[in-house]
Computed example of a mutant assay.
Amino acid sequence: MEIKVELQVSANEVFEQLLESLIQDIKNSTGQTIPKNKLSKGFSYKKILRSNMGYDVTVNVQINELIQPNKYSATIENPKGTNTIEYSLRDTLKGVEITYKEYYKALSNLQNWNYLLVSLIYSRRSKKKMRKQFANLEQQILNAKNIK
């Protein structure tokens, strides 16, 4: 999946929110508070996710790229494959353009075909959900500016 959105905030503001979310996820998963300057390529942590079938799965999250304020990429490895997410940010005259990419590589060809089929079916819903999350992120940043 790949989507592009434009928000009326800066790349720095969006990237700061991404980092804050990452730090909170690490704290929720490990109990540790990690300072921003410790986050870099290669940093990893384990977390527990609930599967679609209702059981817990331990995954490994690893940062692949962290170039502030332009790019963040991470892989989430689970027992069946690897999910990769990537945010690319570029300041524009009106704010920021974000390109979000997400893809999955299963351990078996059958699972890869299954993922491709399911992705085609749910692609529109997934993109709509991500656009809504970006709109919420934009609103959160704008609200924080108004409070200051």
Rank of each mutant, 00 (worst) to 15 (best):
E77M: 13
Y72F: 14
N78G: 15
K132A: 11
Q68Y: 15
T75M: 12
V59I: 08
Y100I: 00
I23E: 13
Y103A: 04
L89A: 03
I23R: 10
N52K: 02
N146T: 14
V96H: 00
E97I: 06
I121G: 05
K27E: 04
L142Y: 07
Y103P: 13
M53N: 14
L117Q: 10
I23P: 08
P69G: 06
N28V: 09
S44C: 06
K80T: 10
D91A: 05
I3R: 02
Y45G: 01
M130G: 07
S88Y: 01
M1K: 10
L89D: 05
P69I: 05
Q32A: 15
I76D: 06
E138G: 07
M130C: 09
E77Q: 12
L110N: 06
A135R: 06
I26K: 08
T84G: 04
R125C: 06
K94V: 05
I67Q: 09
D25Y: 02
Q32C: 03
K129D: 05
T82K: 13
V61L: 12
N37Y: 11
V9A: 02
A11R: 06
F43I: 11
K41F: 04
I121V: 13
S51K: 00
N112V: 07
L116C: 05
K4W: 04
L49P: 02
A74V: 14
T30R: 00
N60G: 07
N60W: 03
L93G: 08
E20D: 15
P69Y: 01
L137E: 07
V96S: 00
K128G: 02
S10A: 04
Q17I: 09
N83H: 08
A106S: 11
L49N: 02
S44E: 07
Q68C: 02
L110H: 10
I3Y: 03
G54N: 06
L18Y: 09
V59M: 01
L137W: 09
E20H: 10
N78V: 05
K80P: 06
N112L: 03
I26C: 01
N112Q: 04
V57A: 06
P79G: 03
N12H: 13
N136P: 11
N114Q: 13
W113I: 10
T92I: 10
Y45I: 04
Y55L: 13
Q8Y: 11
